[in-house]
Simulated scan of single mutants.
Amino acid sequence: MKIFSHIQGDKVIWAVVALLALFSFLPVYSASSNLVYVVGNGTTMGHLVKHALLLFLGFGIIYGVHRIPTHYFKGLSIIAMPVVLALLVYTLAQGTTIGGANASRWIRLPLVGITFQTSTLASVVLMVYIARYLSKIKERKITFKESILPLWSPVFLVVMLILPANFSTAAILFFMVLVLCFLGGYPLKYLTGIVGIGMLGLLLFVLVAKAAPDLFPNRVDTWMNRLESFWDPADTEADYQIEKAKIAIASGGLVGNGAGKSVMKNFLPQSSSDFIYAIIVEEYGLIGGFSLMFFYMLLLFRIVVVANANTSVFGKLLVVGVGLPIVFQALINMAVAVELFPVTGQTLPLISSGGTSIWMTCLAIGIVLSASRKREQEEEMEVDENNPLEVLSGQL
């Protein structure tokens, strides 16, 4: 087909992403019955069509972004940074509830009626911005003082604006920033100081939230309850979601109960998003669960290959910066389902239902493919330079 001639970049990444997206229809269709028959929200076919539309737009994002030359992302990150900061401020200030739920994570897109989680866009933009800065200072010695304004000011602003509404996303983003800075050669002694500042900032926020609970209603209490339920297995009231997820996983056995035959999807909250991995294991067993993990590990391997093959420092850091969080988020989602990690509210990339998480994952994948496409073009140029007859035939 003609469209495939325009698809460039790492073919394995394309294949893994396509397989994950195709597989996602089965668990999303199955788990959406919870929203229909328990919550009373829409129809199963309606949720499936919505998921298909979101994935279709997501692959459009991948295709469009992967055609952008990699070095363009340097300038785009500088332009996008003040935009995402403004969006985060607006999101945090817009109110406390939408339909009974905490609204300080989302804004509603007026034309399509879809909620947009601004923190996911901010995370991708921030990682690109940091990759640009680290590549800029790679060949010279940097002092902590001169890196405060261009590097750490945007980091702490983004994290502080995400933190009141979404602690897990803020914590994961901060950790990924530290990993990228470490890989980018930023002095370890400075990173240690940044960790201390971050811990101090978190403590200050908790104290302020406790002293003035009206500023951030229920957020700190929610974090504490999740941590307490994680460390206290006997607290089944607070640990309801984890208990149901563990029952789902245990009933799946080796080969599972079969597609669409999950029982716990009717009792497990967020069965189509945060806890979809438990439903997958229940229906497809340990074989299905480990197979899914294998594809995420394959994606991680190809991300490392693309980063290693890239000739520019910016390209290497860019691929790691936007690619590694995808796999890290997937592992956290799986770890939560098997109670290796406290409940975080992180979705399973490309599998869980939801708009923003799918689109921002696709944006990150498109950036990785752009970097791999650049490497392919460089290899083609090397071949042409080594074969004068091919150059001549191409000119004729």
Rank of each mutant, 00 (worst) to 15 (best):
A309P: 04
S119I: 02
V83C: 09
I13W: 06
I13F: 08
S272D: 14
M381L: 15
E385I: 10
L215H: 05
M293K: 02
D235V: 08
I197S: 11
E380L: 14
E378R: 09
K265D: 03
P349A: 12
Y72R: 14
L363N: 00
A309G: 15
F59K: 05
T70W: 01
I276Y: 06
D10R: 03
P269M: 12
N310P: 07
V338N: 05
F144G: 07
G42W: 02
N387G: 09
S135V: 01
I148E: 10
M1T: 14
I3N: 04
S271W: 02
T356Y: 03
I358C: 04
M264R: 09
Q8C: 08
M297T: 09
A330V: 06
G99H: 04
L121N: 05
L299Q: 08
V179Q: 01
G315A: 12
K50L: 13
A307R: 02
I332G: 04
F294K: 09
L85E: 11
T143C: 05
E390D: 14
T115W: 03
S229Q: 06
V336T: 04
L254R: 05
S312A: 11
F25Q: 11
V39L: 10
I276L: 04
L318G: 11
L350V: 09
T222G: 12
I114D: 03
L149Y: 13
V36Y: 05
S123C: 09
T311P: 04
L173M: 10
G201S: 11
L204R: 13
Q117N: 12
S32P: 02
L53R: 08
I79L: 15
L191W: 09
G99L: 01
G9W: 07
L151I: 12
E380W: 13
Q395E: 15
G256H: 02
I247W: 03
K374P: 08
S312H: 06
P27A: 07
K11N: 07
D235S: 12
G185W: 00
A103V: 07
L298F: 03
I247T: 13
L109Q: 10
G113S: 00
I279K: 04
I61S: 08
K11A: 14
Q8G: 13
A371M: 12
V306D: 03
P69T: 09
V255R: 01
L35R: 11
L180E: 01
L268C: 04
G193Y: 05
I68G: 08
M127H: 10
I7E: 04
F156K: 08
E378L: 11
N308T: 11
M199V: 13
P27L: 07
K265P: 03
G185A: 10
S33W: 10
L48I: 01
Y186K: 04
G354Y: 07
G252K: 00
W359E: 00
I68R: 01
A93Q: 14
I242M: 10
V159N: 05
E139R: 07
P213Q: 07
I365E: 06
L300K: 11
A15G: 13
L227T: 05
L22D: 06
A335L: 07
L188E: 15
